[in-house]
Design a protein around this nucleic acid. Structure first.
Length: 425
DNA sequence: ACAATGGTCC
DNA sequence: ACTCGGACCATTGTA
């Protein structure tokens, strides 16, 4: 399938998706067993603070609503907002049973009623309280370490994490940051985080052999700014931060097989505008356009698509006469090879790194992998070996496979997961 | 026990 | 009219 990659100078390690998954197994079991240390006191203290704040906001919301109701109930919330206050402005999405009260929809009403803001704040805090602050401290072992379980049963080849899920620990917002800070290195040790920079876009640049995108990565350009220049028809150095933000969404959209509707929703713009962005994007990136058509064609012809190491995803409904079902599988046809190949690259790097750390630990213990979060690794390392290990991690990740563009991993170090400093290597 | 809704991450 | 890719989990409300 991907034999054409060789002609681009890409060298694939001689290994199959199945072998990667077999070899990553023991690595994952070891990471599960080791676990990650949590500052339980800090989480408990944050939980207390947050409970207090929630009680306050709850009262405020009830006062504005003129009655007491269960803020956690979308049903009761819709009753208040849409029946009592008639805040429907014509652009609120419907759910199966009524009008949505999802945050995205409520934001459209922020200017219309004072109750919206505290509701959004309540939602954020109560989410973090009930999903992270309350449960996590109950799950630590006698050494205050938290042990997740990694799974491999996904449709794209990504790993999963559950009981607890450590792949969706908050990062946004003030409280989110504080929660990350409660993931700490043991005494005398540091955490190293290493994440691939735009690995999926680099992968698709190669899968699609897209001239413009390849050039951008080879020259280490700001890919989102460059895309902004293309779709807004301006110079890269004249791109505004707003234009760049839009372009970033467009670039993500590519990976998801974007439709004008989907793009318009995530950018809160008109569909016509979104369609125009997409059209300009595909004009600038004919390689990507061809790639999309090739994957859809393959799914039609063969019934599946696959990653660079041969992980297959069946797409049995690609010929459905229900356009929405067929369209959904077309998007999967576009996304799966990208997301899946990127996942395989990180898994390969983990297999490599495990061996190197084993060697390093032979004489004296120095470092161990703790977590994997799709394009990121968290490693715990003794203070004295930080720079040595950081270098090994970065090189392992960047050299694990030769793509048609450079692979870049950013390495950071800190005493906890919430405040890490970039390491120049 | 289960579906619906909503929200966190990459 | 089309309701963007991949996961896990909490809460509500009904069965």
């Amino acid at each position: 399938m991907w034999s054409h990659l060789k002609e681009q100078g890409i060298e694939l390690p001689k290994i199959t998706s199945k072998e990667i998954n077999e070899q990553i197994g023991p690595v994952l079991r070891r990471m599960e067993k080791i676990g990650v240390e949590i500052d339980v006191k800090s989480l408990n203290s944050l939980a207390k603070d947050t409970e207090g704040k929630l009680r306050k906001i709850e009262k405020q919301i009830w006062k504005l609503a003129g009655e007491e109701f269960n803020i956690n109930s979308p049903m009761q919330m819709a009753e208040i907002l849409y029946k009592k206050f008639k805040l429907l402005n014509g652009e609120i999405k419907k759910t199966k049973n009524g009008y949505s009260t999802a945050a995205n929809e409520l934001k459209k009403l922020e200017g219309k009623h004072k109750i919206i803001k505290p509701i959004l704040e309540y939602r954020e805090l109560s989410k973090l309280l009930s999903t992270y602050l309350k449960p996590l401290p109950l799950l630590v072992d006698e050494k205050s370490r938290l042990h997740t379980s990694y799974g491999q049963d996904t449709t794209t080849g990504r790993l999963t994490s559950n009981e607890p899920n450590l792949q969706n620990i908050p990062i946004k917002g003030e409280l989110g940051q504080k929660i990350r800070k409660a993931f700490v290195a043991s005494k005398g040790m540091k955490l190293i985080s290493a994440d691939y920079s735009q690995i999926e876009l680099r992968v698709v640049a190669c899968l699609a052999n897209d001239k413009v995108m390849k050039e951008a990565f080879i020259q280490h350009q700001d890919i989102h700014a460059k895309t902004a220049a293309e779709i807004f028809d301006t110079k890269t150095n004249k791109v505004t931060s707003d234009q760049r933000r839009v372009a970033k969404t467009v670039n993500f959209g590519v990976l998801y097989g974007m439709s004008p509707y989907g793009l318009s929703q995530s950018l809160s713009i008109e569909q016509e505008k979104a369609a125009d962005f997409i059209s300009r994007y595909f004009t600038a990136h004919s390689g990507i356009k061809d790639y999309c058509n090739r994957m859809i064609g393959k799914a039609h012809d063969e019934g599946y698509v696959e990653t660079i190491f041969g992980f297959k995803r069946m797409l049995p409904n690609i010929d459905s006469h229900y356009r929405n079902i067929a369209n959904a599988e077309e998007r999967m046809a576009i996304n799966t090879p990208v997301q899946g190949s990127a996942a395989e690259i990180l898994k390969l790097a983990m297999i490599d790194l495990e061996k190197k750390l084993d060697d390093l630990n032979k004489n004296k213990f120095k470092a161990q992998m703790l977590l994997t979060i799709h394009d990121e690794l968290i490693i715990e390392v003794v203070d004295s070996a930080v720079s040595e290990v950081a270098k090994i991690v970065k090189e392992t990740m960047e050299q694990v496979i030769k793509l048609c563009v450079p692979i870049v991993a950013e390495v950071k170090v800190g005493n906890n997961w919430g405040e890490m400093k970039v390491l120049k290597i």
